[in-house]
Design a binder for these strands. Structure first.
Lengths: 251, 251
DNA sequence: CGAGATCGTTCCGCTGAGCGGTACGCTCTT
DNA sequence: AAGAGCGTACCGCTCAGCGGAACGATCTCG
């Protein structure tokens, strides 16, 4: 854990954060194990969190509550971005009928702010509110290419986790790809985060250079050719970029 | 405030909850005013919340952070609902090209889990993660009609806030409308939450009777005729309902 | 069927984390 | 120049929070 656990708040946050995107219900015992806190403490704190509507309790354990969902959606940056982006994402979906993502960078990860798709969508590891490493996703490469040198060096320096046989784990190759992204304004992914998936992404640029998000289209190998959607993705990203630049609310 | 403010957790939650959906940045002084807590206390706690990545601090004040956004989207019920619903919402949007909502009931309010729309969407008071009173929205009427008697009586008993000249504030009339909803399987709203807006909604039924959400289409008076979209809305809601019933994950 | 593991819950006395009144320096407004 | 309103810092008191320990209820085996 990043933080000491000697304050109430730290412990409460640790409990909340011990839920991964794939968890639904966690038992008291499971929470105790994950947090490393004494059982009695978890019991008391979880009870408090329930009374504050950050957790719900069911017969089998605790789950993150609707109150937390509501609170999270008040985060102004992500929310405004989402609201402004939605029409562009819709356009993109209608033109492609493939899974459309909107993501921002947070450290070495992409956080997905939105994910929309139809019934026939490809099975992707990404989830709304979920994370993926920057180096193995098209959105991530976009965001990294336009990031400041420090952040870029930080990612390129650290180990690049291999997710599939196609994941780019060589820093040199990745750096060359990033340069290409800057030249062309789009990034690709070919089965680098999950086998059978391909992806095109374009950066949402505010004030010409800073990328505050990226938009992508994802589809399965076979029916989907990423190159065919370059123009559509770029149009969506540029449209959103200029809208955001006009409304200075974000940035 | 509902809770006493004599624990750390209560104070922290109060600070977080003092952000309304319309706020972006709040200054220390503003937080102090809203929470009623001593200035020194707010200062300390806000600092703690920043270090735990629940708040961000900028030069002008504090805002709810991306970390909170991420955490909120792990709330399993809303999240699974959203993921399962998205394809149906997309279909509905493509058929209508008007604003599409997905909402659940929480007490006397509707909480919007999703809102999607295009560039030409009507200006609505609703926001993703936001609330509206049940009695003046089509989604709310759907959810209320299928709610248990206790909840229904609770709403019908309490005062019904007038939002526009068309808001139904007579309990008798509202009760009759709810009965019609049960018979027809759809609910309407005619400028009852905001002037110039109309709406159709249908309930997402699990196991035949319990409504765990509702889907609606909203458009401006003039170009938009709610009656024209009854079938589309009903199809989307029923499709989602049977999907959810098959996957028992929610409920 | 009984021993043991694992679960959620409750009790209670010690103690240091949290508290907030107070004071200070800064930036605006008047 | 005076005042209002802001963010920040200090510090000694005290009670909220702590968590080891014990308990009863379920499971799970041999």
């Amino acid at each position: 854990m990043a933080h000491d656990l000697d304050t109430v708040l730290a412990k409460a946050v640790t409990i909340l954060r011990s839920f991964t995107p794939d968890d639904t219900v966690l038992s008291l015992a499971e929470l105790t194990r994950r947090t490393g806190l004494p059982k009695a403490t978890v019991h008391r704190l979880a009870g408090d969190l329930v009374s504050h509507r950050l957790l719900d309790r069911s017969s089998v354990g605790y789950r993150l509550s609707g109150g937390l969902f509501e609170l999270g959606l008040r985060a102004s940056v992500e929310r405004s971005l989402l609201e402004l982006a939605m029409p562009f994402l819709q356009d993109l979906y209608e033109r492609t009928h493939e899974t459309v993502h909107l993501g921002v960078r947070e450290g070495h990860d992409v956080v997905y702010v939105a994910k929309i798709g139809g019934h026939r969508q490809a099975t992707t590891p990404s989830r709304t509110g979920g994370r993926m490493p920057v180096h193995c996703t098209a959105i991530g490469k976009c965001l990294l290419a336009y990031a400041d040198d420090e952040a870029q060096a930080d990612v390129l320096g650290g180990p690049l986790e291999r997710r599939t046989p196609h994941t780019v784990v060589a820093p040199g190759l990745l750096r060359r790809q990033l340069r290409t992204v800057l030249e062309t304004g789009v990034a690709f992914e070919h089965e680098e985060s999950a086998v059978g998936l391909q992806c095109v992404a374009a950066p949402v640029l505010a004030e010409g250079d800073r990328a505050l998000a990226a938009i992508s289209v994802t589809g399965p190998v076979g029916r989907f050719r990423p190159e065919a959607h370059v123009d559509a993705v770029r149009a969506a990203a540029q449209g959103l970029g200029s809208l955001v630049s006009r409304r200075r609310s974000l940035v």
